[in-house]
């Protein structure tokens, strides 16, 4: 019954339904706590991308691309880069030099502390996650196009 659908077997799909949300959540946790614990935008972005790679491996590429279309990937990739640059330029405008930490530092060990650093982490994670997933998608489409030839 399940054989007609793309992707792997029913067991893998069931397990994936349980785990993919947790992986995505863990990636977001790593990004948001980048200034408190080890991790940060690069590592968290890769984990977020891996959750979508997981979806794509288990359910096939149409299912994953329905959740996160290629246009959305391109937009979030560019948005991350522009957001990172905008934070740096805002520092130039507000504080007088590039990458000035213009937001309030807050108290240490709190989630909303360290000024611009969490925002930079979010921007980098958007960029890295979308970029890696875009490369993965391009490679998959490329190999499929090659097999059809």
């Amino acid at each position: 019954m399940q054989n007609k659908e793309p992707g792997m077997t029913l067991i893998v799909k069931t397990i994936t339904r349980l785990t993919v949300g947790l992986i995505l959540l863990y990636g977001i946790y790593i990004v948001l706590h980048g200034h408190l614990t080890p991790g940060g935008g690069f590592a968290g972005g890769v984990i977020i991308a891996l959750s979508f790679v997981h979806l794509m491996l288990a359910f096939g590429k149409e299912f994953a691309l329905k959740r996160l279309s290629q246009a959305a990937i391109a937009i979030s990739e560019s948005l991350g880069a522009i957001m990172f640059l905008a934070i740096a330029l805002l520092g130039l405008v507000v504080g007088g030099y590039f990458f000035f930490n213009f937001l309030s530092k807050g108290r240490p060990f709190e989630l909303f502390s360290a000024g611009i650093i969490p925002w930079c982490n979010i921007a980098i994670s958007l960029k890295v996650g979308a970029g890696l997933f875009a490369i993965f998608t391009a490679l998959i489409l490329f190999s499929e196009a090659r097999q059809e030839r």
Binding site: H35, G40, P108, F109, S113, G115, I116, I117
Partner: peptide
């Protein structure tokens, strides 16, 4: 910087 993770404070503040 207010960041307790010193690697992040170097990456995203001192050496941004």
């Amino acid at each position: 910087t207010g960041a307790t993770n010193i690697v992040t404070s170097v990456i995203l503040n001192f050496r941004a």
